[in-house]
Nucleic acid binder design. Sequence first.
DNA 1: TTCAATACTGAACACTTTGTTCGGCAATAT
DNA 2: ATATTGCCGAACAAAGTGTTCAGTATTGAA
Lengths: 183, 183
Amino acid sequence: MDRRQKKTRECIFKAFTNLLSKKSFDKITVGEIIEIADIGRATFYAHFPTKDFLLKDLCEELFLHLFDTEVKPCNDKKGVFYCDDYGSVFLHLFKHIKHNDNNLLKLLSGENNELFFRYFKDGVKMLVEKHILDFRDKKPSILPNDFWINHITSTFIETLKWWIDKGLTESPEVINEYFFSAV
Amino acid sequence: MDRRQKKTRECIFKAFTNLLSKKSFDKITVGEIIEIADIGRATFYAHFPTKDFLLKDLCEELFLHLFDTEVKPCNDKKGVFYCDDYGSVFLHLFKHIKHNDNNLLKLLSGENNELFFRYFKDGVKMLVEKHILDFRDKKPSILPNDFWINHITSTFIETLKWWIDKGLTESPEVINEYFFSAV
DNA sequence: TTCAATACTGAACACTTTGTTCGGCAATAT
DNA sequence: ATATTGCCGAACAAAGTGTTCAGTATTGAA
């Protein structure tokens, strides 16, 4: 890929992330993005057909890799997250959040959350489905499978939100316990 | 209140509700609302300073009464909901949804949900706090109180969403069991 | 080094949406 | 009957969106 393209794309992401940490998605204008990114208007639209696609691409870039490497331990810093050890997959995730590589944290808090979490939830759901066995024994037999999966996923997300809202006061280990206790 | 005001306000709500059942909040324009409501532009802004306030007022009108009457049985059709019997408060709510007075259901499904549910959740949370005793014995002792309340509330909301997404296939009683089993 | 392909610039453009203003008209309460 | 109040509707400025295009600069490859 052309060096210029990569550079421009990065600038846009950076500006966008920056803005997302300050105001909600629908208050952000293309004008602001290109001003901070310091690029021409036409350039922006050459990269992204619309603001929504920018968000989509950003989420994919951030989350896809996160959830890909999440299923196995890793000791290297590659892509978005640094992983230094391995417990449960979910503890792993909590640690990542706390570690706050990139400013994922900023993005997940504040008012930006809704759109963001919609993408995030998809990833978590995949993860839950992969690790459904960890929860199988806890499941009340009445519940349909997809209800159960959705419940675990939602509980994870809500636990995360609660944690972030409180300013990540608790340790990842404690939050992980909360999560497993609740579910 | 002036008869005209009430009428206009109703027209706006009706048009807005109508639109909300078809497209998401931020795709709806004031232009569309006033066209369907068949009122002048200036009139709209005489009633609501902005589209967000319209949503807020609509939610208050719908939910406030719902959650007010929700704490006690009622046999009359007053305000938004018709109540024909009484089980747990939450079963009560599920029944209301299924009964679908007003088109609350339309509003809760589709893409409109996020902003809507934010208001809805506040009401549910109040309810949960009032009826926290129903869940006290189930609570793992590790969990902080506010975590527990938030968890129950979220589980209710997510159960509801799951139910609606599936087209309300199950009966309110079954869903209520799911909810209590999960939590 | 050369050069064709490609990406960026920046300004102008049409279009949509927002929220305001105001003179005139109609409904309302008393 | 009349003063008050709400509605009309058209016009308006301001802001945002997405497009276009001619000109310029960078790039990767021969």
